[in-house]
Design a protein around this nucleic acid. Structure first.
Length: 489
RNA sequence: GGUCACAUGGCCGAGUGGUCAGGCAACGGUCUGCAAAACCGUGUACAGCGGUUCGAGUCCGCUUGUGACCUCCA
């Protein structure tokens, strides 16, 4: 098996990936909280870890990919008087909380399909795993690392930190946390400000509530991931992923909870994708600069000059390394759109290339370059650069200026499609509906007529045909022996 | 305020100390009746100032700027 290197946030360095029980790999990724439509930010981790999922499978691992749906609203903040996001949305829309959850889960799934993000192996919901969460809270209480206060259960960070380092993932020190924690309401229930809730007692207005030994209430914000990852991947598993913004406190809390409940560190490799920025600033709910995926695909947003195809978004995201911030702009997106079109055109024309009795390009080296890029912490920008190198060669081969044998072409077709379609997950334009069959036939007819006009030196007519088609968004491209066409997006 | 990142050519974005990544845009050329596409060629990019080194975008220090986390967030 190839040497695959990943950057482990925990150690802050690149490490050779070695699963605990090869060929099996356990992968857990923090999914969305479904209280609103999916936005551009949701696309980044989904695509990043979709790529990881695809690549791990491609190099031969059997991956169990667990990505949760958070459908227990959790609190707006730790000391909030009791508004949870799902319940708040339910009140606004005058529907059941579970209707909110259903609606936005459906939207998320639809957007993920559009982005060609594969479904995870298991997609557990927090609300469906209340018993597991209760068990875990009870375990932590039994071991003496949590305390009950007014019906709520809090994790005792101070005690944990005596023999462990709370903050090791995000590089924080508990003493520093004390100095920077703000004065919030409801803190008096906790021994220390940095303690976090494992279980919260519900106030009367709280509509999402479950029974527990401590109170009628709901689970704390971090326990679901620990409970569900343990249930489906075991006490120790290979990779935990998520957005960088979840490092603290979410993942830090997960580490602490799991360590106490399971008796060991659960996660071997932590991987975090960076944020998408708009005009250099992180997009976020509170900043009011978010763009929904539906808006991106429809163009219906003040910041958007036009609609963008889901594949353009996917390609745009893959053109940056997942650990870099990626700045959104119409200009950048349109550059991606054009680049993607060029790449996909090569995918389409590749099988039809003329063959020769010799091969003049270095296939083995090219393939090795592609793999080396992926093996180096999923360096998709480098991979894509190599793919474009091949695009150039493919075009040269089509012009007969480089040569390839039948056997090598077969290999190249397979490999190029694997990198482009299977691993990067780019999708060719789906041909669907009867109209898509009609258009090529009409175009064939029109271009034949134009060819005849040209033969008769009736350039006025042939130019008119080309210009009028251009106005309809169809570009005519003359070749030596005829003409090609393509539609402009 | 605390902690931590990052600053690359018109735009986006890679870069493991020593052969100009790549994409988009621009310019010149080839091919075309003309265009488009494709191909070929062109750009003295690495925030500033010091330092280490035979050699630094790449290491170290300082300065400036931007951002992230510390509160829900992908």
């Amino acid at each position: 098996m190839v040497e695959f290197i990943v950057y482990n946030t925990l150690t802050r360095r690149k490490e050779i990936f070695e699963p605990l029980h090869p060929p099996f790999v356990g992968l857990y990724v923090c999914g969305p909280t479904v209280y609103s439509d999916a936005h551009l930010g949701h696309a980044r981790p989904a695509i990043t870890f979709d790529l990881l999922f695809r690549y791990l499978r491609y190099i031969g691992y059997k991956v169990r990919y667990v990505r949760n749906i958070t459908d227990v609203g959790h609190l707006e903040n730790d000391a909030d008087a009791g508004r949870d996001k799902v319940a708040t949305q339910a009140l606004l829309e005058q529907i059941e909380p579970m209707e909110v959850v259903q609606r936005y889960s459906d939207n998320y799934h639809h957007n993920m399909d559009q982005l060609n993000v594969l479904k995870p192996s298991i997609e557990p919901r927090a609300s469906g795993h209340i018993p597991e969460q209760l068990d875990m809270v009870a375990k932590i209480l039994d071991k003496g690392f949590a305390y009950i206060s007014n019906g709520s259960v809090y994790f005792d960070v101070e005690k944990y930190n005596l023999n462990n380092h709370y903050g090791k993932l995000s590089g924080r020190i508990v003493e520093d946390l004390l100095a920077s924690t703000r004065d919030l309401d409801g803190q008096e229930e906790k021994k220390n400000m940095y303690d976090f809730a494992l279980w919260k007692k519900a106030l009367p207005e709280h509509i999402m509530r479950w029974n527990s030994p401590w109170s009628i209430g709901f689970p704390g914000w971090h326990i679901e991931c620990s409970a569900m990852s343990t249930k489906y991947l075991g006490d120790v598993f290979d990779i935990h992923g998520g957005g960088m913004d979840l490092m603290f406190p979410h993942h830090e809390c997960e580490i602490a909870q799991s360590k106490i409940a399971n008796g060991n560190d659960s996660v071997r490799y932590w991987m975090h994708n960076n944020m998408i920025t708009i005009n250099g600033q992180k997009m976020g709910k509170s900043l009011g600069n978010g763009i929904l995926l539906d808006q991106l695909f429809s163009g219906n947003h003040p910041l958007l000059e036009k609609p963008y195809d889901p594949m353009t978004i996917r390609f745009f995201i893959l053109q940056a390394h997942y650990r870099s911030t990626l700045d959104f702009s119409n200009e950048a997106l349109q550059a991606s759109e054009k680049g993607l079109a060029r790449l996909m055109k090569s995918v389409a024309m590749l099988p039809g290339l003329p063959v020769s009795d010799e091969t003049t390009i270095n296939l083995a080296e090219w393939k090795a370059n592609c793999y080396n890029a992926l093996n180096d912490d999923l360096n998709t920008p480098i991979l894509i650069a190599h793919l474009f190198d091949m695009v150039r060669l493919i075009n040269l081969m089509s012009e007969g200026r480089e040569k390839i044998t039948t056997a090598d072409l077969e290999t190249l077709v397979q490999q190029f499609r694997q990198f482009t379609l299977d691993i990067l997950g780019l999708r060719e334009d789906p041909e669907s509906g009867p109209d898509s069959q009609m258009l090529p036939k009409l175009m064939e007819l029109i271009l034949d007529l134009r060819q005849e006009a040209k033969k008769n030196k009736d350039f006025a007519l042939s130019d008119r045909i080309r210009d009028e088609l251009g106005k309809l968004g169809i570009v005519v491209k003359d070749r030596k022996d005829g003409a090609d066409w393509e539609t402009l997006k």
